[in-house]
Amino acid sequence: MSLHDDAVLVLKRYEDQEELRQTYLDHLAAQPAGMWKSCADGHITASALVIDPERGRVLLTLHRKMRMWLQMGGHCEPGDASLAAAALREGTEESGIDGLSLLPGGPVRLDRHLTPCAWHLDVQYAALAPAGAVAAISDESLDLRWFGYDEVAEVADESVVRLVAATRDRL
């Protein structure tokens, strides 16, 4: 199965945010290359909010290009077998934490936002950090820091706050 086909299946199974979900499905129907950064009309991205529920905190990155505190995530790559695999790869690369595991049940949220390269149609997952996980800053980050659930609204925008809230509901 292609990554495009996987994305369509994932989105068809996703039961929330009906209007936005349909926007993603329409994009994929109209854009055979809609998974890739090269698609100037926008592209599907995958992200993972790294969480440590035992300590009530999330790991955010101060994104080098966006200069914002965000969850780990980014563009899909040809080697990604699925959207979930892309989210897990991005989470691992940008957090430096091996052994992340995605929360069951598929994506937590969808978020569409404009970036310098194009519209990102982000499929957002949540990933559990293993006990004692130590994060390491990647080349894509200016900083990497754990924040308590209640601290996120002080540093991040509403999209991240909504993702944290949806993740907490899933837990």
Rank of each mutant, 00 (worst) to 15 (best):
C117N: 10
G105P: 11
K37G: 01
P78G: 06
H120L: 02
S82I: 08
M68T: 13
P107E: 10
D111R: 12
R162H: 13
V160N: 06
M1Q: 09
H43K: 03
L25R: 04
A126F: 03
A7D: 02
T45I: 11
L59N: 13
S101I: 08
L83Y: 01
R21F: 02
A86M: 12
H63Q: 03
L142W: 10
A136R: 14
A48I: 09
L25Q: 08
L11N: 09
E154D: 12
T92A: 07
G79H: 13
D143F: 02
Y125S: 04
E18R: 15
S47P: 07
A131I: 05
K37N: 07
P130G: 12
V152K: 04
I97M: 09
L9G: 11
D6C: 01
S47G: 15
G132T: 06
G96N: 10
G91A: 03
E140K: 03
L60K: 06
V164P: 02
S38M: 08
L110F: 08
Y125R: 02
G34F: 00
V123L: 08
Q124P: 00
L59I: 08
P32Y: 09
D98R: 05
G106T: 08
S95Q: 08
E15Y: 06
A86P: 11
G148Q: 10
T115E: 14
D98P: 01
V108F: 04
E77W: 07
G96L: 02
Q31C: 11
L171K: 04
L3H: 11
V58D: 10
V58Y: 05
G148R: 10
L142C: 13
R162A: 15
V8M: 14
W146S: 02
H113A: 11
A135G: 07
L88N: 04
R162D: 12
A30K: 04
L11I: 11
A46F: 09
D143T: 01
G34N: 10
R145G: 03
H43I: 07
S159K: 14
R21C: 14
R112D: 09
G79A: 11
G91S: 13
P32I: 10
G74W: 14
L142D: 07
P53K: 03
L102M: 06
A136Q: 14
Y125V: 03
H113P: 03
R57F: 00
E158F: 00
P53Y: 00
A85I: 12
L20H: 12
M66F: 15
Q31T: 07
H75I: 07
E18W: 09
S47K: 03
A40F: 11
G74T: 11
K12N: 10
H113S: 15
A86T: 12
R109A: 15
V50F: 04
D26P: 04
E77A: 05
I44L: 14
M35S: 05
V108G: 01
S2W: 12
Q71M: 15
L9P: 00
L100P: 09
W119C: 02
V161K: 02
R168E: 03
Y149P: 01
A131H: 11
L144H: 07
M1W: 08
E151I: 01
Q31D: 07
V108K: 05
A40D: 15
P104I: 01
A131N: 12
D6T: 07
E94L: 00
H4P: 13
D143C: 02
H75G: 08
